[in-house]
Amino acid sequence: MSLVYVTNVTKEYANGEEMIRPLDGVSLSIDEGDFVSLMGASGSGKSTLLNLIAGIDQVTSGEIVVAGTDITKLSRGKLADWRAAHIGYIFQTHNLIPVLTAYENVELPLLLLPMSGAERRKRVEIALEAVDLTSRVTHYPRQMSGGQEQRVGIARAIVANPTVVVADEPTGSLDDETTEQILQLLERVNNELSMTLLMVTHDADAGSRAKRKIRLERGKLMENGKDTKTAQLRTA
């Protein structure tokens, strides 16, 4: 039993006359507690696949089942509720809300869930502690460094204890030293908090830190040099 099943997913864009098909019948399953890196050339469709799994984009065809729910069948409103409960999203450029403090940014996902104020406070404190930012709670994003902002972004992604944490190039705009800090933090999120992690990156070093590495090439997913579909068919 895996946590995430991507089955025969195709995504097409109409670009004028021409059709672009970044994902062409992609299949993939991710086990609970795994740390998967998704690599590939720029424009190979990595973000597209991640966004489909995160439920912020719609498939052209195919099925995505996460923790038993086929998310391709949900309405926009229901899908939003589902994201609030199941997905933690780490952006390349943190995307913190500039008018809110670090604390308020981390609290934001919890406001969407039925939860008491005391419970919220406890969870925010735990999340901020996990990213080692307890001394910066009242700071605004503009008062923090890029690394600190990204740590707040990670705290925001894990605070609601999601089913899957997805990260799209989380170290893409950071220097080497900060990249290392963030990668260590992501490893801790996976190991110590036992969260399932899917990380998109085009950086081979970053990608190699994951437990499982897959690549997108010309619309197909490859693992250990083989198409994941055939790999999956074999195990099925």
Binding site: I56, A80, Y89, P109
Partner: peptide
């Protein structure tokens, strides 16, 4: 971003 976090369109 708010929608990604799970804020409904409504």
């Amino acid at each position: 971003v708010l929608q990604t976090l799970g804020l409904r369109p409504s």
